[in-house]
């Protein structure tokens, strides 16, 4: 052995990449949930800034991202949308994802309402010439309570993600979590949607037998 082992200090940096790779985590999946459907004949545009990642309980690296999305009503009780996210930090790390999602309004009882979401997506992360990819599916149950024009949202989510990187075996990440969000109706066409999500996956990482996933974000919703 010799001083070369000092390179192991860089395991920390490698761990950052894994966190980034895992960060395809729960956050991107059908984010900024609320039970209201896009008004008929209109489009909801979404612009968001978010931080998301995976954590070992001892350490974790939040990955900042920006997201854009659009939604349309396609049925009395269904709207569908597409969302893209990107983190462009050049060769060190670049990540992008795309997701299509649908939402089915389940019902309303006074101030209380419920919807069922579903989304499937793809993410690619490149770090210094290494490529990590993942596909995911998520099913959030969305529960809302109207507070005047605004809405408070609680949303338990289950999902599954599969990650690939050449030379490694595919990694399966079943996950479950919930998010707490708010639809703050600023004006007729404008709303702010803060949302925080925590999730859990039984997949181990280099330190612990399971991993936590997290996401916090703030979206601006514009209806046209």
């Amino acid at each position: 052995m010799s001083a070369s082992l000092s390179g192991f200090r860089t395991i920390g940096r490698a761990a950052l990449i894994v966190v980034a790779a895992l960060a395809a985590g729960c956050g991107a999946y059908t984010s900024y949930k609320q039970t209201r459907l896009t008004p008929r004949g209109h489009t909801d545009y979404l612009f968001a800034a978010e931080l998301q990642g995976a954590s070992t309980g001892m350490d974790g690296a939040p990955m900042p991202e920006i997201a854009v999305g659009a939604r349309r009503r396609v049925h009395d009780r269904i709207d569908v949308g597409a969302t893209g996210t990107i983190l462009p930090l050049g060769e060190a790390i670049t990540s992008a994802s795309a997701e299509v999602s649908g939402k089915l309004a389940l019902g309303r009882h006074g101030r209380w309402s419920a919807a069922l979401g579903t989304g499937v997506g793809y993410r690619v992360t490149t770090s210094s010439g290494a490529v990590f990819e993942g596909v995911h599916a998520a099913v959030p149950v969305i529960l809302g309570v109207d507070l005047g024009r605004h809405q408070l949202v609680l949303s338990p989510t289950v999902g599954y993600e599969r990650l690939w990187s050449s030379g490694a075996r595919p990694v399966s990440l079943p996950f479950a979590g919930y998010s707490l969000g708010f639809r703050w109706q600023l004006a007729r066409r404008w709303a702010l949607l803060p949302e925080a999500t925590v999730g859990y996956t039984p997949a181990r990482n280099y330190r612990t037998d399971s991993s936590q996933l997290f996401q916090v974000g703030l979206a601006v919703l514009f209806t046209r």
Binding site: R9, T10, A14, L22, S165, P170, L173, T201, Y206
Partner: peptide, 19 residues
């Protein structure tokens, strides 16, 4: 000054990435 660079796939220590 001597420096070290580690080589390993981060996915190896995630789930079954190195099963």
């Amino acid at each position: 000054v001597s420096r070290g660079v580690a080589i390993m796939n981060p996915l190896w220590f995630a789930g079954d990435g190195m099963e």
